[in-house]
Amino acid sequence: MNKNQRNADYLIYVENQSPKSGWFVSLFRAFIMGGTICCFGQMISDVLKSFYPTMNLLTVGAWVNIVVISLTIFLTAFGVFDVLAKYGGAGTFIPISGFANSIASCAIEYKKEGLVFGVGAKMFYVAGPVLVNGVAYSMLVGIIYFVVSLF
Protein backbone atom coordinates (compact mmCIF):
# COMPACT_ATOMS: atom_id res chain seq x y z
CA MET A 1 0.00 0.00 0.00
CA ASN A 2 1.48 3.34 -0.93
CA LYS A 3 2.01 6.09 1.59
CA ASN A 4 -0.53 8.57 0.23
CA GLN A 5 -3.28 5.98 0.30
CA ARG A 6 -2.29 4.94 3.82
CA ASN A 7 -2.34 8.56 5.04
CA ALA A 8 -5.68 9.30 3.36
CA ASP A 9 -7.26 6.23 4.97
CA TYR A 10 -5.74 7.14 8.32
CA LEU A 11 -7.08 10.71 8.21
CA ILE A 12 -10.61 9.48 7.47
CA TYR A 13 -10.29 7.04 10.34
CA VAL A 14 -9.04 9.77 12.70
CA GLU A 15 -11.85 12.08 11.64
CA ASN A 16 -14.40 9.41 12.57
CA GLN A 17 -12.72 8.68 15.88
CA SER A 18 -12.29 12.30 17.00
CA PRO A 19 -14.96 13.50 19.39
CA LYS A 20 -16.98 16.49 18.18
CA SER A 21 -17.83 19.42 20.37
CA GLY A 22 -21.53 19.32 21.22
CA TRP A 23 -22.68 21.57 18.39
CA PHE A 24 -26.15 22.40 19.65
CA VAL A 25 -24.88 23.65 23.01
CA SER A 26 -22.06 25.65 21.38
CA LEU A 27 -24.46 27.19 18.90
CA PHE A 28 -26.86 28.16 21.64
CA ARG A 29 -24.07 29.71 23.73
CA ALA A 30 -22.72 31.64 20.74
CA PHE A 31 -26.24 32.90 20.04
CA ILE A 32 -26.77 34.06 23.63
CA MET A 33 -23.35 35.66 23.96
CA GLY A 34 -23.46 37.37 20.56
CA GLY A 35 -26.99 38.62 21.17
CA THR A 36 -26.10 39.93 24.62
CA ILE A 37 -23.07 41.85 23.41
CA CYS A 38 -25.08 43.40 20.56
CA CYS A 39 -27.91 44.35 22.95
CA PHE A 40 -25.38 45.95 25.25
CA GLY A 41 -24.17 47.99 22.26
CA GLN A 42 -27.70 48.96 21.40
CA MET A 43 -28.26 50.08 24.98
CA ILE A 44 -25.23 52.39 24.84
CA SER A 45 -26.48 53.81 21.57
CA ASP A 46 -29.96 54.44 23.06
CA VAL A 47 -28.49 56.13 26.13
CA LEU A 48 -26.30 58.34 23.95
CA LYS A 49 -29.23 59.25 21.74
CA SER A 50 -31.35 60.21 24.74
CA PHE A 51 -28.64 62.55 26.02
CA TYR A 52 -27.58 63.97 22.67
CA PRO A 53 -30.59 63.71 20.34
CA THR A 54 -28.79 65.64 17.61
CA MET A 55 -25.75 63.36 17.39
CA ASN A 56 -25.49 61.77 13.96
CA LEU A 57 -25.76 58.01 13.57
CA LEU A 58 -22.16 57.46 12.47
CA THR A 59 -20.82 59.17 15.59
CA VAL A 60 -23.17 57.11 17.77
CA GLY A 61 -21.94 53.95 16.06
CA ALA A 62 -18.33 54.97 16.63
CA TRP A 63 -19.04 55.60 20.32
CA VAL A 64 -20.68 52.20 20.70
CA ASN A 65 -17.60 50.56 19.19
CA ILE A 66 -15.29 52.54 21.44
CA VAL A 67 -17.19 51.59 24.61
CA VAL A 68 -17.33 47.88 23.71
CA ILE A 69 -13.65 47.88 22.72
CA SER A 70 -12.57 49.64 25.92
CA LEU A 71 -14.60 47.34 28.10
CA THR A 72 -13.18 44.27 26.35
CA ILE A 73 -9.63 45.51 26.78
CA PHE A 74 -10.13 46.07 30.51
CA LEU A 75 -11.76 42.64 30.92
CA THR A 76 -8.80 41.13 29.05
CA ALA A 77 -6.35 42.96 31.30
CA PHE A 78 -8.06 41.56 34.39
CA GLY A 79 -8.02 38.05 32.94
CA VAL A 80 -11.82 37.73 32.70
CA PHE A 81 -12.39 37.86 28.96
CA ASP A 82 -10.81 34.49 28.11
CA VAL A 83 -13.23 32.84 30.53
CA LEU A 84 -16.20 34.55 28.84
CA ALA A 85 -14.81 33.58 25.43
CA LYS A 86 -14.45 29.96 26.43
CA TYR A 87 -18.17 30.00 27.13
CA GLY A 88 -19.26 32.15 24.21
CA GLY A 89 -16.96 31.00 21.39
CA ALA A 90 -17.87 32.77 18.17
CA GLY A 91 -20.36 34.83 20.21
CA THR A 92 -17.44 36.77 21.67
CA PHE A 93 -14.99 36.89 18.80
CA ILE A 94 -17.32 37.82 15.94
CA PRO A 95 -18.46 41.11 17.54
CA ILE A 96 -15.84 43.87 17.69
CA SER A 97 -14.92 42.57 21.20
CA GLY A 98 -12.98 39.71 19.59
CA PHE A 99 -10.88 42.15 17.60
CA ALA A 100 -10.12 44.20 20.72
CA ASN A 101 -9.32 41.08 22.76
CA SER A 102 -6.90 39.78 20.17
CA ILE A 103 -4.95 43.06 20.19
CA ALA A 104 -4.97 43.48 23.96
CA SER A 105 -4.06 39.85 24.71
CA CYS A 106 -1.09 40.00 22.33
CA ALA A 107 0.08 43.31 23.80
CA ILE A 108 -0.11 41.93 27.35
CA GLU A 109 1.49 38.62 26.40
CA TYR A 110 4.42 39.92 24.42
CA LYS A 111 5.35 42.92 26.55
CA LYS A 112 7.93 40.62 28.15
CA GLU A 113 9.86 40.78 24.87
CA GLY A 114 10.05 44.55 25.25
CA LEU A 115 7.96 47.50 24.15
CA VAL A 116 9.45 47.73 20.65
CA PHE A 117 9.78 44.17 19.35
CA GLY A 118 7.34 42.69 21.84
CA VAL A 119 4.31 44.95 22.08
CA GLY A 120 5.04 46.97 18.97
CA ALA A 121 5.72 44.15 16.56
CA LYS A 122 3.56 41.33 17.93
CA MET A 123 0.45 43.30 18.90
CA PHE A 124 -1.15 42.32 15.59
CA TYR A 125 -0.16 38.66 15.69
CA VAL A 126 -3.84 37.62 15.66
CA ALA A 127 -5.64 40.84 14.66
CA GLY A 128 -3.23 41.60 11.81
CA PRO A 129 -5.06 39.53 9.17
CA VAL A 130 -8.30 41.36 9.93
CA LEU A 131 -6.74 44.81 9.63
CA VAL A 132 -4.66 44.01 6.56
CA ASN A 133 -7.56 42.41 4.72
CA GLY A 134 -9.99 45.07 5.87
CA VAL A 135 -7.83 47.91 4.61
CA ALA A 136 -7.12 46.09 1.34
CA TYR A 137 -10.82 45.41 0.65
CA SER A 138 -11.80 48.96 1.54
CA MET A 139 -9.19 50.35 -0.87
CA LEU A 140 -10.43 47.98 -3.54
CA VAL A 141 -14.05 49.05 -3.00
CA GLY A 142 -13.02 52.72 -3.00
CA ILE A 143 -11.00 52.44 -6.20
CA ILE A 144 -13.70 50.46 -8.00
CA TYR A 145 -16.30 53.02 -6.92
CA PHE A 146 -14.04 55.87 -8.00
CA VAL A 147 -13.40 54.33 -11.43
CA VAL A 148 -17.07 53.52 -11.97
CA SER A 149 -18.14 57.02 -10.93
CA LEU A 150 -15.80 58.51 -13.59
CA PHE A 151 -18.01 57.21 -16.37
Binding site: S18, S21, A85, K86, N101, S102, S105, I108, E109, Y125
Partner: peptide, 10 residues
Amino acid sequence: PLEFGNQRQA
Protein backbone atom coordinates in the same frame (compact mmCIF):
# COMPACT_ATOMS: atom_id res chain seq x y z
CA PRO B 1 -1.51 34.49 23.93
CA LEU B 2 -2.81 33.34 27.32
CA GLU B 3 -5.48 36.04 27.60
CA PHE B 4 -6.74 35.43 24.07
CA GLY B 5 -10.29 34.14 24.11
CA ASN B 6 -10.41 30.91 22.15
CA GLN B 7 -12.23 27.64 22.60
CA ARG B 8 -10.34 24.38 22.75
CA GLN B 9 -11.34 21.57 20.43
CA ALA B 10 -12.81 18.47 22.02
